[in-house]
């Protein structure tokens, strides 16, 4: 499955790119993270502490156990600071 993976704020800075397309068979967000970690040192730094990360699957907030079947876009970012 082809996934559009997007990064925001310091996650984007650590990865070094705002988005990338990945080919993956990961069934859940957590397993996708394991694959992404191995892509570069920047990815490893971005995903070093997943308690500091939030996830959206197809632009809706999701948990790390969220299934990826049928998903097109997954985003990783720090806790939000709107308002």
């Amino acid at each position: 499955m082809r996934l559009d993976v997007r990064y925001f704020a310091w996650v984007r800075e650590r990865v070094g790119a705002p988005r990338e397309t990945v080919e993956t068979g990961a069934p859940t967000v957590a397993l996708l993270i394991d694959e992404l970690r191995a892509r570069s040192e920047g990815h490893a730094a971005a995903f070093a502490d997943t308690t500091a990360l939030r996830v959206a699957v197809d632009q809706a907030l999701a948990g790390f156990d969220a299934p990826l079947a049928g998903a097109r876009e997954v985003a990783f970012f720090p806790p939000m600071t709107g308002g």
Binding site: F8, A56, A75, P78, M80, T81, G82
Partner: peptide, 30 residues
């Protein structure tokens, strides 16, 4: 306001005389 603070996908980066950095989410807001 409470939900916009913690559940709307915005992130703030401050540029200060003392340096730059991302604003951390506050536990009180959560």
């Amino acid at each position: 306001m409470d939900y916009l603070k913690s559940r709307a996908p915005f992130w703030k980066k401050e540029r200060r005389r003392s340096g730059a950095g991302w604003v951390a989410a506050r536990a009180e807001d959560e």
